[in-house]
Design a protein around this nucleic acid. Sequence first.
RNA 1: GGGCGUGUAGCUCAAUGGUAGAGCAGUGGCCUUUUAAGCCAUUGGUUGGGGGUUCGAGCCCCUCCACGCUCACCA
Length: 505
Amino acid sequence: MADYTNLEKIRLEKAQQLKELGVDPYPRRVKRTHTIQKASDAFLAIEDDQEAEPVQAVLTGRIRSVRPMGKITFAHIEDGTGRIQLFFRADDIGEDQVSFFDDHYDLGDFIQASGKVFRTRSGEISLRISEYTMLAKAITPLPAAKDEVVDGEVVQHATLTDPETRYRQRYADLAVNPDVREVFRTRTKTIRAIQHFMDSKDFLEVETPVLQPIYGGAAAQPFITHHNQLKQDLYLRISFELYLKRLLVGGFERVYEIGRDFRNEGVSFKHNPEFTQMEFYWAYADYQDVMGLTEELFAFVVEEVMGAKSFTYKGQEISLDQPWQRVDLREGIIDTTGIDIHKYKTATGLAKAMKSLEMEFNPKAARGKLIENILDHYLEPTFIQPTFVYDYPREISPLAKTKEGDPNTVERFEGFMGGVELCNAFTEINDPVDQEERFLEMGRSYSEGEDEHHPLDEDYLRAMRYGMPPNGGFGMGVDRLVMLLADKHTIREVLLFPHLRETEK
RNA sequence: GGGCGUGUAGCUCAAUGGUAGAGCAGUGGCCUUUUAAGCCAUUGGUUGGGGGUUCGAGCCCCUCCACGCUCACCA
């Protein structure tokens, strides 16, 4: 049984009183005739017409402020479309009905209110109440003090700000912070825009297994689960890649998927154990083609969501109105650090060069990891405007085709903006023999002291042996894109229910 | 996992080692066009949990928990 606070006990008592008076505080039926927005619009349309019938409306919403003044009471209610003031007056409904409202209704309660829309002396569009009824009694007070409306804007006073409570009780956060609701509208708009764009390019949206007997397509620890009847361990997917490419073997030329990936790893401002990914695979295309499509995709999404070809992130304007900057990874590293990675063919040599420049790195890292480390720490933060970095070391890209004449470099790029990595793409390997070797290479590098082991996906290789068209693939962290567009600096602000540690009791 | 920081009333925040407070919300009054309405009165606390030092701890020490920032990790 819940442990009620004193404030909650008072409200429970009010609910009980309603029941004793024969009023159901949680009735089954509602009769709404207008949303608040529609009622206001209807009023504005006839306001100047002396002959017009007044707007009669039955509105529903949550009580957000109350001002009792003796024989009249003002209150504001809020529905999904806006706010409106309610005006209870003894001359209209009798003193008993005004004080009944004052005595039994609280901030946060859902109410149904009927009456005429009018404008008060001070000029605010309001509903002159003729009848009202409880729709849902709120027992726990919303974690907000009060708000007022200034020039149509809701100004909040001492609302909920504690991040832990906001994430653990997102329902309360949403109920009280309209800007948080707006973030999640932006999130949905972003996903819709991606779908519209991909659909318009004849990509087929598909769904592939979340429960997989073998995980792959990325280097990450999986979550493991078990199918009882089949007596089989299964993994939650860490990527969609290997399933989507099987579809290219099957004859689909352009496929994409938007969905959840699960990685059993650290939680940070840009990592959540489950996150949303978009991947596409495009037959007969290479990574240069994918770069072009990526530019178009982002330009489209930003324009759809933001209504402009640019947006502001951390105070910096990011423009999608021109081709992205293109940086060769090797040259980028030379320009920023002076190190030419081609001159250092081993991890020890490269580490030595990094050490002489007093760069920080993990001494146990392989050469490819060191290069990635340089990219992450020294180049990535400088890529504010949209930037592609291309041509990566082979050893950190086991699914990407090598460059012609350069077996140590692969046709791969990553996209950045706002100093954040957003996407990753390459010309995909479609030679089954090459792919098997690369998998084995990967297995070896992990077995050298790493706890990560990588299962070999024989079925994926079998699929490829049937013949896979040359293709370009692309993956993008959707949460991070939403972070950019909503100008939020932690992934938790763009996840409705971010993962938090369980609390005791 | 490491470092730094935070945790006080429903919410937002105060409080030299010396009686735990304020605003809002709540409760009881007054008030027929208010806008965080106003005025008078008033309730509400295991100061995140546990232990210690001290005549005395919200404050100092130890420990545990949660959250935040950050580093590490993160084809």
